[in-house]
Design a protein around this nucleic acid. Structure first.
Lengths: 199, 199
DNA sequence: GAATATAAGATACGGCCGTATCTAAAACAA
DNA sequence: TTGTTTTAGATACGGCCGTATCTTATATTC
């Protein structure tokens, strides 16, 4: 009764590892997921994993890309900047439902430690970051005359993304009320698209 | 020639450890600073360190508090909200000169992983976070009639802090131009204290 | 000054990381 | 088929974490 010694290779092996990674992520969460644990559960070794992904963050992002069921953001076009912003935030909220908050936080922490991971997160999920979604929204709004122009400094175009990340990190959720507040009290005033009623 | 076996205790020992920690921080940086390294350099053991501080982040923050030469922020009161904001940002820039950006980033990453460290960073440096500085500034501005009122939602009061942290993380510095942009293009519009010239 | 309490120091552990080295299987080439 | 290249698998390492255990020096108390 010699054991079968058949070896997976290439895509099949990669697929199996990502599958296991995704499972571990669901059951243990990001922090408690270990490379050794994945290797063991996938009946392979760390060596094999490290040959394909440089670290946990990349592995997890790959697994999310494969099994997360997230297709990226689309540019909202509701006809109003305000509702465009709200629609964007709803998309992000949906994204966070798929990628647990704890995972998001872990990835972010890792990204901070390895600066080379810079933007990997946003790129992985949206091609070019939320900013790539926001800019077209601003273009539309400017074309409609809702805002004075469409070429704002990077810091402003990135502001929605910053607010969202901060919200998730500090409050561990992205409530509807928070989204309204960010849009109405911060974003619209910044882009000069509001006549907020004084308190 | 038996070695002298005198043992440091209490404050003296604590002081020596913090001293070494601060040195290591300067020479190796946050990431490459290790508990074992500090223990060795301080001629003691990890056990002793862990009895006083739960992890690297706390140890480093303690060392910074002791040797960092930073006294906390003060509420600017220049007579104008705009210049108050700029003065605050100058203080933060000065803070970052003392605490290397790399250290800041490392601490932040650790904080993300251990949620219990929440706010430890800001508390350590300013009693209650930048928000505790911003609120009085808003009070003053409201009293002067520069802004309509002073009780803004937390999200707005925290906005300066968020912008600053983001700036440091993504650009590794806090340039003067950035500070002007954040104040003039974001903060003042948000608090309704500007009549920004349309582009 | 002797007994007791407190805290430092030494040591060893299991866990995980990331790497290096060696082997053996699978795919490919001739 | 056989030889060659590729890549998986096994193993071992040094580094660091955080904890537990035990010994021993220093303070404290009587």
């Amino acid at each position: 009764m010699a054991e079968k010694k058949t070896r997976r290779r290439g895509e099949a092996l990669k697929e199996a590892i990502l599958r296991v990674t995704w499972d571990e992520l669901q059951t243990k969460g990001y922090q408690r997921l270990t490379m050794e644990g994945v290797a063991a559960a996938a009946a392979t070794t760390k060596t094999v994993i490290y040959r394909r992904w440089p670290d946990k963050a990349h592995l997890v992002i790959a697994a999310f890309g494969r099994f997360g069921g997230f297709d990226g953001y689309v540019v909202p076009d509701t006809g109003k900047l305000r509702t465009d912003f709200l629609a964007l935030m709803a998309q992000v909220a949906a994204f966070l439902d798929k990628l647990a908050e704890e995972t998001f936080r872990g990835l972010l922490a890792d990204r901070l430690q390895h600066l080379d991971l810079e933007n990997l997160l946003t790129r992985a999920s949206s091609g070019n970051g939320i900013q790539a979604i926001v800019q077209p929204m601003l273009d539309h709004a400017a074309a409609r005359g809702e805002i004075a122009h469409a070429d704002w400094p990077d810091r402003l175009v990135n502001l929605p993304g910053i607010l969202l990340i901060n919200e998730v990190i500090t409050r561990q959720e992205l409530s509807l009320a928070a989204r309204y507040e960010m849009v109405d009290e911060i974003l619209l005033p910044v882009f000069g698209a509001t006549a907020r009623a004084p308190k």
